[in-house]
Design a protein around this nucleic acid. Sequence first.
DNA 1: TTGTAGGCGTTATCAA
DNA 2: TTGATAACGCCTACAA
Lengths: 332, 332
Amino acid sequence: MPVRSGTPGMVDVARLAGVSHQTVSRVVNGHPGVRPETAARVRAAITSLGYRRNATARALVTHRSGLIGAFTTPDIDTDRLLSGVEAAVRAAGRTLLITVVDPDDPTGVDRLLDRVVDGHLAVAPTTSLLATLGALPARPPTVIVEGPSHPLGPSVGADHRGAARALTHHLLDRGHRTVHHVTGPPGSHIAAERAAGWRAALAEAGIDAPEPVPGGTGPDTGHAAGRALADRHRAGEPITAVLAADDTLAAGLFHALADAGLHVPDRIAVAGIGDRPESTHLAPALTTVDTGPRAVGERAARILLDMVEGREGTDTTVPATAPRTRASTGHW
Amino acid sequence: MPVRSGTPGMVDVARLAGVSHQTVSRVVNGHPGVRPETAARVRAAITSLGYRRNATARALVTHRSGLIGAFTTPDIDTDRLLSGVEAAVRAAGRTLLITVVDPDDPTGVDRLLDRVVDGHLAVAPTTSLLATLGALPARPPTVIVEGPSHPLGPSVGADHRGAARALTHHLLDRGHRTVHHVTGPPGSHIAAERAAGWRAALAEAGIDAPEPVPGGTGPDTGHAAGRALADRHRAGEPITAVLAADDTLAAGLFHALADAGLHVPDRIAVAGIGDRPESTHLAPALTTVDTGPRAVGERAARILLDMVEGREGTDTTVPATAPRTRASTGHW
DNA sequence: TTGTAGGCGTTATCAA
DNA sequence: TTGATAACGCCTACAA
């Protein structure tokens, strides 16, 4: 038979206060119909014993845990998306449970399902991850953050396509004959949308899109991409403007291009997406666009909380936040 | 009285398989002494019903949830520390529960205590947060990550003092008469240790430490600090070398110093701490030291897991990881 | 090898 | 206004 945990429970409080454990429950949960005097006695017993309500037992009987789960897969802006999610979840008095999912091995998904969470957030999920999730039996309300739309639940995301498109047009308007593209991580929905926006802008200008340079995230990846671009330049391909799928690529890009004698911005123009804080401070400052990842994360979490708490439609109808597209003052 | 949740339980599986719910429990938990044939029937019922073990009910009776809680407060390297923690926790088949604590308002602490977690990680906690934690009644095993030592539990951290000291000596050896310091966030233990190392090195060289420049984290803060340094330089103070408490300050520092005509590295030398990936790609590359935050996070989590799972002393004895001090090849 | 009984700490219902 | 009682879904101990 099970053992008592050692920490005091409602029964202990009840005994000390000379009431039933049910009355303790009423006091703890602020239910009406308890004589003030009794409530005071109970409260005294609670502090004297250092009693804290057992969330597990509560969850067992109420079928809600106050926990929100987040699947996450490393991608562009995952950190800021999660930071927004965390803030909203915390503001709602709930706790966030984070599981990092390896896209190649989505076993972590199972683990999160074993826990009782009131709702799920799929942060920057790949299509295959969503498929895995969708194939599972009964799962709690789910909201997709920066992922492909899927019957699993509503999607919340910024207009990456529009942002990339606008930046590409911006470069073309500056007189460049074409714009090259360093992509984001393979399998990333955000990266795919940004690439699509770049392609769309070129198509609108009647330009054949040059072969994109495979990228990812981070300055080291950007450095590798910069070397690839420099090689193609050396091979005779005219390269004058580059749109990087992510700001974090920029420092490495600048570095590699400079090493190859392609100084930014004199010989080559570079724009990024994401408005990372460092972008203003690079030399030269990176032209970029803010896609508001923190706001997206917060919004997604709030939509999920609405669903979980049965508040219908407060926020659910609008599927995407408009990006606050502010281009930083670049050198060109 | 409580309502059944709708999802199948052991009783449902048992009924379908024609056994008792106890036998189901045995099969699910891999206990011996079940006839293979019976086990197969149970397993068939499980898949057919899509049964999953209810972690809450399990936690209620076993007094262990499989959950590890992390308090976190925004600081230098919090992200990488957490990433290491997450990896180790996940590798152990457990789930991480993250709570961000506002150091000025540690109410989140209460929240995490309401949940049943098997162990706590205090990631980059302030002294006051530890005091709040320590004042609480019964709390689970705790490990402090990059925080001041405290009776709450073992501390794990890199040798920030040594790293800062070594870098300061490195600058002095290069002929600088003194080294200025841009500090990290106020209240940060990491920042305090790094400042102490800087002070120690100057003291060892018989130099009076110049007034440190208040900093924090991030390029924008670095930019502000750079302007402050430039002002002091303009006011006649000889400034030739700067140790930034954190790499993320560097880009902003470079930017502000360059704007003030103090080109790095010609007019002024700058070193950072933390070995962020972008540091290699700045112009010029930043001299820095790796303090292995991911490894520290992993190690701390493993120590906690040892404590939680009753594995004594596997790792607990050694309180700090040695930093892999590799200075990147800077320009000076 | 399998089933029965009891209890983990809480909430909900009903009666007093 | 308060208390008894029955779940929630599971695990441990013991009996069969």
